[in-house]
Nucleic acid binder design. Structure first.
Length: 604
RNA sequence: GGGGGCGUAGCUCAAUUGGUUAGAGUCCCAGACUGUCGAUCUGGUUGUUGCGGGUUCGAGUCCCGUCGCUCCCGCCA
């Protein structure tokens, strides 16, 4: 007999009745009746009830065994009597009556509860991640992750993509996020950088003629975390294709994404092709370039109407170049005054100067600004926003950027608070036609608004003839339920257009050569038109696992401050290591006052 | 770097307008119990209320500072 097991804890059924079998696993739950002990034995595959009778020599030992200890038990499979069958367990029709018992590994009292719903504090969960991962939910999430990645690989290979590995130790990229740096022992004072993404390598693979590339690629960025953004490192399904248009890329990606979401979820799903929303329209309607289409609220631009109105507060905003956005919401006119007051307060807390609203109620239009509005203006608003009896319109007036941000935030909040978010559905869209450049208020200069390697729509002619701020790029995002899955672009494969685009963003030719030499050189030696994108694997798994925090789908995540509390990273290293790397540490000034050193006040 | 929330037993949480000895469940320890499946029952241990200071006759509660975790803004080509 195998020393550890003949079956797993998920295997046994009435068919194995009377067989002698062996199981190994963790003591999940224990029910001690004094003259009879039940243990729910758990492994990766399931849970099986094992029964201990008091005539066995190890009975006292079993009474003392602590939860999560690892044991091996051998005995006969018995069918449970009808009243004692547990319908909640797949193995619930049988139990194992133990004749031989061996303790493999004793567990100390646990720092976390594993049975039950309580999760415990985040730092303890992370420090004891291997325990946390024993829980069913996390265990299931990581299995799902593995299955999703296998499916992604299969779907990519089926579409004639090949998987490539690209360097992890590479050079620091001049644009974008902060790099993680790795000092070179052989080259004093020089550093490798971990790749923020394999962007340049995948383009070079296209230039090398491989036509269709993908990689489940690790990416490293030294930026702060969010609930949907793991600090330090994450994975992308990195994709690049040659001789393609934007539509070709959408087509491929829609098949893969739709297929994977269909395979791993029974939620409703937008069919391909996914709706395409120009960036400017998304900002106007949803106040976001990653709109959550599950929320049935669309903003309207009503600047023109208020420009002519008698309502000074809004008219002056529009006259100064600002905008007025209307947020129509159906059937909430009966909400109490406090609802509106709280929303106004919330709007102010996120930086709005105020929050006006109109209420269509009992055949009249009410609300703080109703008295400033002419009847025909109210009628036109109702038509433009599609509102009627019982509906409400909120208004945000501000500079376009702020109005979009505040309006978008309010739209989401209204969706959440009013429970308007469609349930059990994945809503996808492409955001297309991102601007190539934007005006940076801080530096008072034109900068790339996204990836500098994107092809401007209209090519060289557009760069030469159009207002830079009106030039669009073949740059797109794919968004699901308000979560940005991926950015991508048709790349700029022409050195001339590239130099010109960089020039417009304030970079000279020599600077481009210095920073992107490998790419430019490659473009000068025969480059196919190409493009791609890179959906975030962690985010896809997060959506499919229906988790709101990305840590729940990563085996060993770092905390918000990019520390691994289990492995104690980052950590100091030895003097010897530093010497070999030619590194001297220069710490920031220590914090001023130690606790307890403050002079006590005199008297008493 | 900035803003919000949280911090009470190993874990989950309670503690009235500031009021006397900070409680409950769970875990742990001891005992009882032959059909449970979150077993049950009896008893017991467990606290620098994150830390430091202040106000007060009196602080878990109020104030200031600080630390930790988290969410958000900045940031993420």
């Amino acid at each position: 007999m195998h020393p550890y097991r003949t079956h797993t804890c998920g295997d046994l059924r009435p068919e194995q009745k009377d067989q002698t079998v062996r199981l190994s696993g963790w003591v999940f739950r224990k029910r001690d009746h004094g003259q009879l002990i039940f243990i729910d034995l758990r492994d990766h595959y399931g849970v099986t009830q094992v029964v201990f009778h008091p005539d066995r020599p190890f009975f006292d030992e079993v009474q003392k065994i602590r939860l999560e200890s690892v044991i091996t038990v051998t005995g006969q499979v018995a069918a449970r009597s009808l009243e004692t069958v547990n319908p909640d367990l797949p193995t619930g029709a049988v139990e194992l009556v133990v004749d031989a018992y061996e303790v493999i590994s004793l567990a100390d009292p646990l720092p976390l509860h594993l049975a039950g719903e309580d999760e415990g504090p985040e730092d303890i969960r992370l420090k004891y991640r291997f325990l946390d991962l024993r829980r069913e939910r996390l265990h299931r999430n990581l299995i799902l992750r593995s299955d999703i990645i296998a499916s992604l690989r299969r779907r990519m290979l089926e579409q004639n993509f090949r998987e490539f590995q690209t360097p992890i130790l590479t050079s620091s990229s001049p644009e974008g996020a902060r790099d993680y740096l790795v000092p070179s022992r052989v080259h004093p004072g020089k550093f490798y950088a971990l790749p923020q993404a394999p962007q340049q390598f995948k383009q070079l693979l296209m230039i090398a003629g491989f036509d269709r590339y993908f990689q489940i690629a690790p990416c490293f960025r030294d930026e702060d975390a969010r609930a949907d953004r793991s600090p330090g490192e994450f994975y992308q399904l990195d994709i690049e294709m040659s001789y393609v248009t934007q539509d070709d890329i959408f087509n491929v990606v829609e098949q893969v994404i739709y297929g994977v979401f269909k395979e791993f979820s029974n939620w409703k799903l937008d069919p391909a092709p996914f709706v395409r929303i120009p960036y400017r329209e998304a900002m106007e309607k949803y106040g976001s370039d990653k709109p959550d289409l599950r929320i049935p609220i669309e903003m309207r631009d009503v600047s023109a109407l208020f420009k002519e109105s008698k309502f000074n507060a809004f008219r002056s905003v529009v006259e100064k170049g600002g905008v007025v956005r209307a947020i129509p919401v159906k059937a909430i006119s009966d909400k109490p005054r406090s609802f509106f007051d709280k929303l106004v307060e919330y709007a102010q807390s996120i930086g709005s100067k105020g929050l006006a609203y109109l209420v269509w109620s009992e055949g009249a239009v009410k609300g703080p600004i109703a008295k400033f509005m002419a009847p025909d203006e109210l009628a036109r608003l109702a038509t433009m926003c599609g509102v009627g009896e019982g509906d409400v319109i909120f208004f945000v007036a501000d500079a376009a950027k702020s109005a979009n941000r505040i309006g978008g935030d309010l739209r989401s909040k209204l969706g959440r608070d009013l429970d308007l978010i469609a349930k059990e559905v994945y809503r996808f869209c492409w955001i297309v036609d991102f601007p190539m450049f934007e005006f940076d208020e801080e530096s008072q200069a034109i900068i790339f608004s996204h990836n500098p390697f994107s092809m401007p729509q209209g090519g060289m002619q557009a760069l030469l003839e159009k207002d830079p701020l009106d030039i669009l790029a073949y740059q797109y995002d794919i968004v699901c339920n308000g979560c940005e899955l991926s950015s991508g672009a048709i790349r700029n494969h022409s050195p001339e257009i590239m130099y010109k685009a960089f020039e417009m963003a304030g970079y000279g030719q020599d600077e481009v050569d210095r920073r992107f030499g490998a790419m430019i050189n490659a473009f000068k030696l025969g480059a196919p038109p190409h493009g791609g994108l890179a959906p975030g694997v962690d985010r896809m798994v997060m959506l499919l696992a229906n988790e709101t925090n990305i840590r729940e789908v990563i085996a060993f995540p770092m905390n918000q401050k990019a520390q691994d509390l289990m492995m104690n990273a980052p950590a100091t290293v030895t003097e010897k290591q530093l010497r070999e790397l030619h590194i001297a540490i220069k710490l920031p000034p220590a914090r001023a006052v130690e606790p307890g050193t403050t002079p006590a006040p005199a008297g008493g």
